[in-house]
Design a protein around this nucleic acid. Structure first.
Lengths: 218, 218
DNA sequence: ATTAAATCGATAACAAAGTATCGATATAGA
DNA sequence: TCTATATCGATACTTTGTTATCGATTTAAT
């Protein structure tokens, strides 16, 4: 469910997943000590293959790396951020202000990644009109109009599984072009709408399966 | 960062990610109407290839499917649940009771997936001693002892990136065998410890990259 | 009872992703 | 200045995962 997207700009989907880790790692380094950083070092730090790292970076880096020294850390950071779209901000709205919804509304880190969650929507009268981290919670019937007016491109779904498809339809109706779906269901959308699934249950399944096998081994 | 695990029991990691979607979909069907379910129907519903579905199910199903009718829905459900380990419960603890931590502690759905989060840990005096959904929040210095005594296998990390490695080390020290890591960093662990990364920033990067490309196209 | 249609499972072809190798090149140290 | 070495980038190879094809089988309809 994760790998259905085509590869754009010569970067495979899997590579795309690795890029934020590169960015993160390079940013975490002491600038003075590591003005340059090489593929082998990154590979070792992140438990990856050296060639793989080099290939991934080749697709992203504008200036390329130099033999013996590697890539200029500062340039690589900005190339990665540029490539990942952290510089251009996407406006988003979130539907379903439960525990998870609130957590996402409150999370400050998204803004560094180019995502700005403008507001939340819910059907529960009790929380409509309240604030979460300065973000207003509005009723669902305001959704369509607001999305159009503010040209919101991204919708985040954090409602229960049963309601997800209905909300999804509303979002499509409202002109949303990309959906970040936290409900554990497959959503049906028109071709021009992207869906990125964040299925905790599936993730957990992978973890638990591996754990079982790992415990069996010993 | 998602595909580093080996494939166990003849199921690739990618296939493993699809299984919960199958389970979910089959469960959502009207039992009376669909006592049997075929690979082509599942494939169509989830936008997958028919052969792929059949292959995935072949690895999971004990009784197999019959020509013309497909698989017996009830059996397939229990085979999937068995395979995914939803029947055998893993005990878990969570470290970092912020917004996300609270959301995970509150989420009821994990118990159906074989995960039981026993309690939370945090360093913040203000929340130590409180409850989240009936789960106690304890100080970090109690962690090791409690994990040993209750033979907890799974640790969930929802602390900020900077503290993640330190918490990770504590968990390893406490005998944890699998870590579900929500911090956007690569964790260093001994060979026998599993790490499953849940990197929202990375996920967002993929979404935003695809969105940019998709908007460019038109 | 016989035939037609749908599905399964297996095998084979194909595509994508990851890894190893090799020559070229820039830097650090002798 | 010259040489040794680390790293890059490109190409080739290997592995893994996906998709197409084909015969076998079961059911439903004639």
């Amino acid at each position: 469910m994760r790998n259905q997207e085509k590869d754009y700009s010569g970067v495979s989907v899997q590579a795309l997943w690795r890029l934020p880790y590169y960015l993160n790692y390079i940013k975490s380094l002491d600038e003075a000590k590591y003005s340059c950083i090489s593929a082998p070092i990154i590979a070792k730090a992140l438990n990856l293959n050296e060639v793989q790292v080099r290939k991934d970076l080749a697709a992203v880096s504008n200036s390329g790396g130099k033999p013996k020294t590697g890539y200029v850390a500062k340039e690589l950071i900005s190339d990665l951020e540029e490539f990942l779209g952290y510089n251009s901000v996407d406006e988003a709205i979130l539907v379903g202000v439960g525990h998870l919804g609130k957590a996402l509304l409150s999370y400050q880190g998204f803004e560094n990644c180019g995502l700005n969650i403008l507001m939340g929507f819910d059907k529960d009268e009790a929380i409509i009109g309240t604030n979460v981290c300065g973000k207003q919670i509005l009723p669902l019937d305001k959704l369509k109009d607001l999305c159009w007016r503010m040209s919101v491109n991204v919708g985040i779904i954090t409602v229960p599984a049963k309601e997800a498809q209905m909300i999804c339809d509303m979002l499509v109706e409202a002109g949303i072009r990309a959906i970040w779906n936290f409900a554990p269901v497959h959503l049906h959308v028109p071709d021009y709408v992207l869906v990125q699934n964040e299925n905790l249950a599936a993730s957990l399944a992978v973890l638990s399966k591996n754990l079982t096998e790992s415990l069996k081994e010993k």
